[in-house]
Design a protein around this nucleic acid. Sequence first.
DNA 1: AATGAATGAGATTTCATTCAT
DNA 2: TATGAATGAAATCTCATTCAT
Lengths: 195, 195, 195, 195
Amino acid sequence: MRVKEGNKEIDIIEAAVKVFAKYGYHNSKISKIAETANVATGSVYVYYKNKEDILLKIFSDLWTKLYDELDLIVSNTSLSSIEKLDAMIDLIFDVFSEEPSLALVFVNEQNHLEQSNKKGFTNYYEKFLDRGEEIIKKGIDEGLISENIDLTIFRNFVFGAIRHLVHCWARDPKTFTINKTRMNVKLFIKHGIAK
Amino acid sequence: MRVKEGNKEIDIIEAAVKVFAKYGYHNSKISKIAETANVATGSVYVYYKNKEDILLKIFSDLWTKLYDELDLIVSNTSLSSIEKLDAMIDLIFDVFSEEPSLALVFVNEQNHLEQSNKKGFTNYYEKFLDRGEEIIKKGIDEGLISENIDLTIFRNFVFGAIRHLVHCWARDPKTFTINKTRMNVKLFIKHGIAK
Amino acid sequence: MRVKEGNKEIDIIEAAVKVFAKYGYHNSKISKIAETANVATGSVYVYYKNKEDILLKIFSDLWTKLYDELDLIVSNTSLSSIEKLDAMIDLIFDVFSEEPSLALVFVNEQNHLEQSNKKGFTNYYEKFLDRGEEIIKKGIDEGLISENIDLTIFRNFVFGAIRHLVHCWARDPKTFTINKTRMNVKLFIKHGIAK
Amino acid sequence: MRVKEGNKEIDIIEAAVKVFAKYGYHNSKISKIAETANVATGSVYVYYKNKEDILLKIFSDLWTKLYDELDLIVSNTSLSSIEKLDAMIDLIFDVFSEEPSLALVFVNEQNHLEQSNKKGFTNYYEKFLDRGEEIIKKGIDEGLISENIDLTIFRNFVFGAIRHLVHCWARDPKTFTINKTRMNVKLFIKHGIAK
DNA sequence: AATGAATGAGATTTCATTCAT
DNA sequence: TATGAATGAAATCTCATTCAT
């Protein structure tokens, strides 16, 4: 259990996630974030260099978490490649379904950060995708997955697809039920839609 | 009277696509767009109400074009559903591969517009997806496509996947060759990756 | 009878009176005046040097008209000073009651012009007041009007009072009926309110 | 924290009165007001929402002050109605003679505010006139003032007259000496000019 | 004379960031 | 550390005026 004991550094991040999710990065004011975090405007700059730095922290935390969890899956020797693939998809949906605001920020602002190409962010993001790619490679080696696919393309195909569906879910959770969505995704990825 | 030489209305849009692609919508200054279009700053406002109006025009033009072309495909009675699906994928890649800047704007700013939810935009975008969905429905009826898929989820799955790959291509055309990319996409969508 | 035969110079003035009355001088756009006059924007500048020039023309026309009519009254040897005073008051109310828009422009923008202190305007305005002052002087000489009044103060007292009442009337003609208003004004000026 | 030295809120208002008086509301730039107040441009917006808000504050302060002082006069049981009327006239001249700039702003911009009809302003202005009207009503009841006058017209007659004279005084204090002016005004209002 | 597209100077306003306390 | 008043650079947008036709 996390106890809320006035950790401003964390409060600010949590507030920023909410505010960025609601208004978008560029329309979010530092003063609004500070207010949401119950902190003075100036205090934000005690913990973060500037506005972008906050976004950077959000994403690096996110990808670190995703990476660490993915690592457990990949390292788990009792799972087949296909099962790992499923587990990876579940992981992503699980992480975001806990925090819809984070999902929105992730979807809307990831491009922004990629453009400014900060280290510490790209690192973890790429590492995550690399780790996911290992699953597929293994699957190919084991003969479970087709050898005719381009791994780089595939991983971005999946990334884009899931990101957009997370977006859909965050905006309209009734239509895009987590379980229905993830089930379909697994199906599409593994078997496509052709009969 | 002073008469139009050239076509400033179009020049401005083309300039805006370039500038938005390079700097992102929020970091693009009207003065930069005007400069790029060889036009005075004020002239931008002769043709467009404000900055967002320009973006709106870019997107509504884009989706109108995509819709019209998709319409031809869907109406073509000599194609099977699967062939139509392939043709739709080709269409998207074709449109963007002609204009990498437009591709970047499309990828980065679509969310922005969806949030402000302007008419004239959402209309065409949704209509395009609706039309694409018809292909799949037909395919299901014809027994070519699995009946176990959720159409709404599927269309967003594909939309997100392709959008991200277009992005990848625009940023790194060497790695994400148009042909290799579209080939893989068709494969993934139809057959998935499982053997 | 004035025949409307496409005299742009006049059309523009009449349009300007309407537009200034509705939006105020500073919020009135030349393009709106042109539109109202059924004339192209550029044509306004064929007849008037700039925006202020239009206002100047409105006021100089107004004061010229008022002056000429007042001249007739003052020169009329068959009227007593008191009757002339009454006639002057009637004159002002008559002129404005014909054109409520003009009344509003008069009230709201006179100060603006006085500040920029253009000739051709101040001239007629001052001449009008001078001519009015003659009536009072004569009345004093004839023993009809108190000799204890400061003429300069009096003329501005009356000017300010009537101007404001014209304003009241233009904004709320039901409450400030022309006849009731002018009757009261005559009473106040001549006899004050004390019993 | 950085703490208020001096009082910028008041400094800005005082600067605005000067600047509005000199250039008129529409020709006054925020940057000029800020400069005059020895404050950064942005600081103006810390205290006031926008330019009109500043004007609003000036007027509501003014009318509040006038109202409060008039209240004392009206409530003073040792004065006759006629004496109260005189005191009211004195009050107005006293308030403005302390601050010629304020007088000019009052005269030139009151209409502007009436048009945009903001609350907090109209309230106090109308309340002041209402309170003044009470004096007249009482005077009528006491038989000191003629019962043949329309109160609404009268109050606007006086308001317009005095406003314009305040204007004359502010622009040319030599000619329109406060004392001479107020003396004449009292005379005109009470006894008119007829012998 | 008439047009209206084009101009560009300039003003308002915003808000990330600073810094004195 | 914490504050929040103060800053001022920067960007959008307006519109009077111009001028090529």
